[in-house]
Design a protein around this nucleic acid. Structure first.
Lengths: 130, 130
DNA sequence: CGTTACATTTACGTTAACGTCAAGCACTCT
DNA sequence: AGAGTGCTTGACGTTAACGTAAATGTAACG
């Protein structure tokens, strides 16, 4: 539990990202790897954050959006006003995501309809081709 | 049913986009407005396509991805091989979207857990502040 | 007929999220 | 010591999806 530290290469292999990406995320204050002299050592916390970063990206959130949500996951509880603001921000995000899911369901249904039409058409084309 | 044509401004107001965006989509062959002399006139078909474009964007699809799916919606059925390829492409897209929905459900659940924790924390902070 | 109000094309600018060198440390192996 | 490997920090390049500005056109209004 103490030294589960990973080099940049181990991180890249685990998460399928490039070193450039990890350094970029550090520059943007999304990750905070320790240093062994000059080299980066990524902690368990960094890995947890990276998991969330990559998920967020798959939903089209910007890195800046993601950074704000990440701060929700590791607030220390020392600041009252800040906590409330973060809470409200997270609630908005949740609403966005639920709206997105609703739309996604709709789009999937429509696409399925289209697919059935396409299937029928292809079948009829097959028959027409003897 | 014959002349439900819209000017660029009417389009912008209806869909909340800028003229630049509509011209850009035309340049990228996502829309095909008619011309009245020099001016664009957008058809019902253009509006249908724009609706799908904007939805696609909300899911983080690129315009190029969207263009390919759009072609599914108005193929004429004249090309067999092309239709099959398009059909397969749409199926892949559908699989992607369903995977995305599964992830989205998971993320929403996690975020809700975080929110409850935040709520509890805020409540306890309130009590501590008399 | 002047001007006001949009429209058009052309073209350069911008932001996000990295990619891609280049040049130099740090460690290891031989 | 030399060679190789992997890490580091710049710094400039790239792509997508438009923004923005300049110059011009044109339709309608008073």
């Amino acid at each position: 539990m103490t030294d589960d530290l990973m080099t940049i290469r181990q991180m890249c292999d685990s998460f399928d990202v490039t070193p450039r990406t990890l350094r970029f995320y550090e520059a943007k204050e999304l990750l905070f790897p320790q240093r062994d002299g000059t080299r980066r050592l990524f902690t368990r916390r960094d890995r947890a954050r990276l998991t969330l970063i990559l998920r967020g990206k798959r939903f089209g959130f910007s890195l800046e959006d993601i950074r704000q949500v990440l701060d929700l996951y590791d607030r220390d509880g020392s600041n009252h006003a800040q906590a409330i603001r973060t809470y409200e921000l997270a609630q908005q995000r949740l609403a966005q995501m639920e709206a997105q899911r609703a739309e996604l369901d709709e789009a999937i249904a429509e696409l399925k309809t289209e697919l059935d039409a396409g299937k029928a058409m292809i079948a009829s084309l097959r028959r027409a081709a003897e």
